[in-house]
Every structure is written in C-alpha cells, then in structure tokens.
Design a protein around this nucleic acid. Structure first.
Lengths: 213, 213
DNA sequence: CAGTGGTCTAGACCACCGA
DNA sequence: CGGTGGTCTAGACCACTGT
C-alpha cells in the first residue's frame, strides 16, 4: 500500500530517534527520495508524499504507456527470429552489417483494439538466449531484468499514409493516416533496441513532456 | 572562459582549506553542480567538468528546431489580434472563458519551403503590449526577453489528414498526411503559450530525446 | 602509499509555519 | 510558542584509485 499524495512523512528528528542515526544521514536518505520525486519538502511544515509528477521525458514502452492510460496492453508476436543485420539496422545498433540480430515483430493492442505494428531489432550479443527464454509481454521489463533498461532514447516521429501491408495488419485501408515512430534506445553506451512502430492515427496520440517538472 | 570537459576540479579538501568551510558544506555546493550536470564525480579519482550532456527533452521552438537542422526559419503572420478566449483555450491557458487572449496565426517556412501552420494563443495579462511591440520572429525569444521562457511543456502529437483549409496554406491536397502538435508551455506555474501546429508530413519529422544523457 | 570521493556522527543556529 | 526543514561545523572511517 502506498501512502496517499500529500500525506506527511515522519519528521527528520523523529526518524533520527527511531533509527538512532544522525540527522544528516536521515536528510541524505530523504534527499534521494526527493530527487526521485517521491517526497516533497515544505520548509517550516514538514515532508510530504509528493504528487506523482509525470517525469519529464521518461522513456516509456508501449506497455507502460497503455497502462498509464488505463488500457490493457497486449502483444501478438508475428515474427521472432535471428537475422543478419542489414546496413541500416547495423548502423543504428552500432554493430557490423551481417552481425546476428533479433528481429521481433509484434501487433500491439490496447483494450483488444489494434493499435500498432512494431518491428524491434535487438543486439543478440547483449541478450543471449533471449529468443529461447519465452517472449515477454513487455520488452522493457525483459531488458530491465537483464540490467539493460534504456537510460536514453531518441524517437523520430512522423506522419504518413498506411501501406497495403500496414493497413492489413492495422485493419485500415491503404492511405489512412498513421504515425511512425523510429526509436533508438541506449543503456550505458550500448544500443539495446532499435525499433520502428506504426500507429493507427485515429487511436493514438503521443504525449511528450519536456523540461524539468 | 569555461573549463574544458574532463578537466579536474579542485578536490573537496582543497576547497575546504581554501574557503575555510566544512567539507559537508563543500559537498553540498558541489552536489548542486553535479545534479545540474556541470560536474561529474569519480570515486577515488576526483571531480571533473562533465561532458555537456544533451539536455533531455529540451523545449524547443520552431525557430530553434529549424536552425539546429541548418535550415533558415521564417514566419509569415496571417493573424495577430486580441480575441476572447473560448472554453478550450481558456482551460488550457488556465484563465476564464471570455478573458482576453492574443491569437497569433503564422505560416512557417524553412529554407523558403512551407512547413507548418501554427495557431498560438497567449495570455494577454502576462504579455502587456505584446501586439503593439512588433511581432518577433521567434516567440520563445520574445518570451525569454520578458523572463517567461517556458520551463515545462507538454506536446500531444498525432497524425492526420489535411483539411481543405490546411491544405490551402500548406500547399497540399486535402487528405494529404500531416502531423498535428498541440503544445501547452508553462513558465513557473503560469501557462504562457497554448498552440496547435500542423506540419507537412513529407517535410517534417519530429525528434524527441528522452531520459538523461 | 597518499589522495580521492562516499558516508556518517552529534551537535549547532537560522527562517519559517501553524496554533 | 514549539516543531519543521535548511544550513553548517569539525571531525571520523571506508572503499577506491593511481603511482
């Protein structure tokens, strides 16, 4: 059970007594929670559970994104196999053309409605046994479990018309509006994911928060 | 003159001696610079000037965005007048319906090519005499000059087909692909800008950087 | 080894808030 | 007024780095 936003945390001096520790130590611990946005200090009043602030520019996966909207995310794997990287994918993944990559194509739904067709390319070397371990629902959860959650990502977002193939998968007519998102996700100087997603424009609006909250 | 990235900062104990202050105090001062990304600590080695990290999700205006791509941004004002806020704009600007707003419609070009049609709504109260002072090229420069540069912004990005009116301005045919961006920009709890932009999909790709560099 | 940052102690004084 | 967070002191020990 999480405490409700706005509810007071124990005062620093109370924690000092409770844990038999110096106040500077308590403050450093609280500071960490404050910079994480979990607590909020108000001078002269106390320390409180912060309003959940939408983290500026947080890197979200489709799964997290849909959940935050209160929708149920689902994935249907269309392709999951080893391939040799082409020149474009190789450059984006920072490997050599012909190197082994994992190609994972999924049709993604939210509340049973088709939302997005996604082609993800992963660096095989960083994810040994990934294909054999059973495909997870959330790629980012799987990466996190391996200590590879992206710390930085770059999206190229554009609008376009659906191709015939995309229309077939997304239950659209060719030429209908779609949003394309090309992502390059990095974890500590290692490119862990390169993906191209095609979203149904009528069902998806991307929300981007910029700057410091 | 700024110090070069990677150059060492004085050690904490040196600063203690130099300023006759406690080490905890020095550390707190340095901590502030570290969270700002100006310094980097390396245990056992020292404190160094950090590599300038690309600020995650920096709020950019059209002008800045185009310049960074090496294109020459231009704006043609189609409308610039006082209006009474409708309910939607009023809510977004955090004012009351009927309050006075500045409506600024511009056709925006990059290297002489039509790129975007933008409707910006500004809070009159925050920008006295704005319309009379001659319209700037960059709205964000003008806001910055008044100490109102946005510190936080939220974009809703979607793909769509151009309406007849949009097509006329953007030199498209109705139904061609466009990207819509609805922005709400905030400076210190004051909503300073609400805008809707329509970009030609064939000429514009939005780049978004997420996470900490 | 000497020097670095990381962490911790046990106090202290201040400005601010609410009753 | 008492309680809060904000800041500061003058030490201490640790793990780590480079030579």
């Amino acid at each position: 059970m999480n405490a409700a936003p706005g509810s007071p945390a124990p005062s620093e001096r109370v924690l000092v007594a409770q844990f038999g520790v110096a106040r500077m130590t308590v403050r450093q611990a609280l500071d960490a929670l404050v910079v994480e946005g979990l607590l909020e200090r108000i001078p002269g009043r106390g320390t409180f559970v912060a309003q959940p602030r939408s983290v500026a520019g947080r890197i979200t996966s489709f799964t997290e994104d849909m959940r935050r909207r209160g929708l149920l995310p689902e994935s249907q794997t269309l392709t999951a196999r080893r391939e040799q990287a082409g020149t474009g994918v190789a450059r984006a993944l920072d490997i050599s053309p012909g190197d082994c990559v994992i190609h994972w194509r999924r049709l993604r739904r939210a509340d049973l409605q088709v939302m997005c067709l996604e082609d993800a390319y992963l660096n095989e070397v960083l994810l040994p046994g990934f294909l054999e371990s059973g495909m997870p629902t959330s790629l980012y959860d799987a990466l996190a479990a391996r200590g590879l959650r992206p710390t930085w990502a770059e999206d190229a977002v554009s609008a376009d018309h659906a191709t015939q193939e995309e229309a077939d998968h997304l239950e659209l007519r060719p030429g209908d509006a779609v949003m394309r998102v090309a992502r390059r996700a990095v974890c500590r100087d290692k490119v862990v994911e390169v993906s191209r997603s095609v979203f149904r424009a009528d069902r998806f609006t991307m929300h981007v928060q910029l700057g410091a909250g």
